[in-house]
Amino acid sequence: MTSVLEAHGLGKRYGRRWALRECSIDIPAGHVVGLVGPNGAGKTTLLKLASGQLEPTTGGITVLGGRPAGGRAQLAKVGFVAQDTPVYAGLSVADHLRLGARLNLRWDAAMARERIARLGLAPAQRAGKLSGGQRAQLALTLGLAKRPELLILDEPVASLDPLARREFMQGLMEATVEHEFSVVLSSHLVSDLERVCDFLIVIVDSRVQVAGETDKLLATHYRLTGPRRDPDRLPADQHVISASHTERQSTYVIRTDAPIHDPAWTVTGLSLEDLVLAYMDRRTVENRRVALEVRR
């Protein structure tokens, strides 16, 4: 299968601060990819690099086999719905569709019109007067009607109320069935992505922590609970993601491809949310340790 996004040693620095570093990922086509991490973790930077809004400081990135924003053909293949779904406040809904029709090589005018009608948006309505949910739907319509092979969405539902959130996701997911394109969307909430994604990338502190198909991630991560034990006494093929200890008990979240035979452990699976939290937690634990060492 071909890759929609391939990055090797990708990094982006603003001044002295790295927004993203040492990012190496390979996303196969045909997935709905969730990019999850806390605010400021580097999600937007990665998405902007993928759409060619930013140039990498180090490493390289190819999207659908081409250089991001490297010409009209590449632009036609990749759709992008930016954070807070910006639209031209002074232009009407119909103007936006016209904009899309005029600025794109491929433009599915029928689909755009049909979507707008189904959403109940008046074509003469000024985009500035739309509600947040309607604006997001308009931006999504622009992204969909250019019929991209990859649609990138940066926190598309972060500022929407639950109903608008659901309607947005319904529209997006329906379109993926109808038109078969890959999707990469980011959120700081796992709950937004849990149902829609079949591929997950967790990014914390400007580094990619884990990336893979959600089924595989869920099948290789476990929570072990049992009598207190040091991490170095765990088998070598069990990678500790997070750990917590009381005087008598240890709880580990581990990643392993092998079955767990140790009878001392109570082994449970993880929900996607728990899995992501474990990776986020790992970073904070490490940071805390560093901070303590510095203080000494």
Binding site: A69, G71, L75, Q83, L99, L103, N104, L142, K146
Partner: peptide, 15 residues
């Protein structure tokens, strides 16, 4: 300021 550059730069024309 409105973020619309991100909208228009991702249509099918180069910056």
């Amino acid at each position: 300021e409105a973020g619309t550059h991100l909208l228009v730069w991702n249509q099918g024309i180069t910056r």
